[in-house]
Design a protein around this nucleic acid. Structure first.
Lengths: 157, 157
DNA sequence: GGTTATTCATTGCATTTGCAATGATGTCAA
DNA sequence: TTGACATCATTGCAAATGCAATGAATAACC
């Protein structure tokens, strides 16, 4: 009986609040992944995203990555700098538009990705195993959220 | 033809990587909520969580909140201090165990929550609307992730 | 061509964050 | 009781973050 005398409040339960649940799940997942990457490869989540995008998409600019990978451009920039220092990616000025950078994996970066990918896929498999038969429904919902939110980001309204 | 000559790499797609998807969805949702709370009430997400938990659970210690609300204890502590300064919560030393604090809503805090709850519920409703018939499956999956990850947090192994 | 806006990447700087003390209490056993 | 250890909240401090310049390059317009 820890209720005080408030007849009005409907007894809100954070545990049933989807944004909160989503946030906790995401945090935990990212944290787990981050732990793996940091311990085994010395790579942060931002760096991982940049690498993964480069592996997938060849030469890209910082702006491209920012858009495609949900990372602040300053975060991308700094991640890229660290990766370059580590010899994992190369920066080149785009000859067609010299404001743009062309980021690309070095052979070392490519080799590291070859090591990291199995870890990533293993992590993914683990999540899928946990989800079990809820996987399809979950991914479907997630997709809806991602689709709908695509541009809700920029509330010019 | 942006493929270089790498026969081995399986063409990993970040967009199909659940941790990433989860993280983006969560970030966007939290950001949307944060925008509402900040603009209309001057409250951060951490502060919102503390308030929500207090509204739900009466007197609680910082440690309780840390555990129940997925917030670092220093974050809780600082959020609580700001809320106290704002006159929204009260801190009292637990007479039974003077290491503990008893956080509780002040009338002002209670009043603010009464204003914020409809906004929260509206946000929740919006998400549910977006999910549509995918809602149940999504929440089911989310729940599995949350259940399973409950204690994976502390890898003493 | 010359001038003004845009776009891009980086960086300065204030704020936030997370982690490791710190100090204040409490527990337990000798 | 005393002393060693555990728990709680706070805080110091270094690192990360986000936002707003900054400077370089291009585009657009006249």
């Amino acid at each position: 009986m820890e209720d005080q005398d408030d007849p009005a409040l409907p007894g809100f339960d954070l545990d049933r609040f989807t944004p909160y649940r989503l946030s906790v799940a995401a945090e935990r997942a990212s944290e787990g992944l981050a732990r793996l990457y940091r311990a085994r490869f010395g790579i942060s989540v931002a760096e991982w995203r940049v690498l993964a995008h480069l592996e997938h998409s060849g030469n890209v600019s910082v702006r491209d990555i920012e858009a495609r990978v949900a990372l602040e451009k300053s975060k991308v920039s700094r991640a890229a700098s660290r990766l370059e220092t580590a010899g994992l990616i190369a920066k080149a000025v785009d000859p067609a538009d010299r404001r743009l950078l062309q980021l690309s994996l070095t052979p070392e970066g490519r080799a590291l990705m070859a090591e990291m990918l199995p870890v990533a896929l293993g992590f993914q498999a683990e999540i899928e195993a946990r989800l079990g038969d809820a996987l399809a429904g979950f991914e479907r919902g997630l997709q809806r959220l991602l689709d709908d939110m695509e541009d809700k980001d920029d509330p010019s309204a």
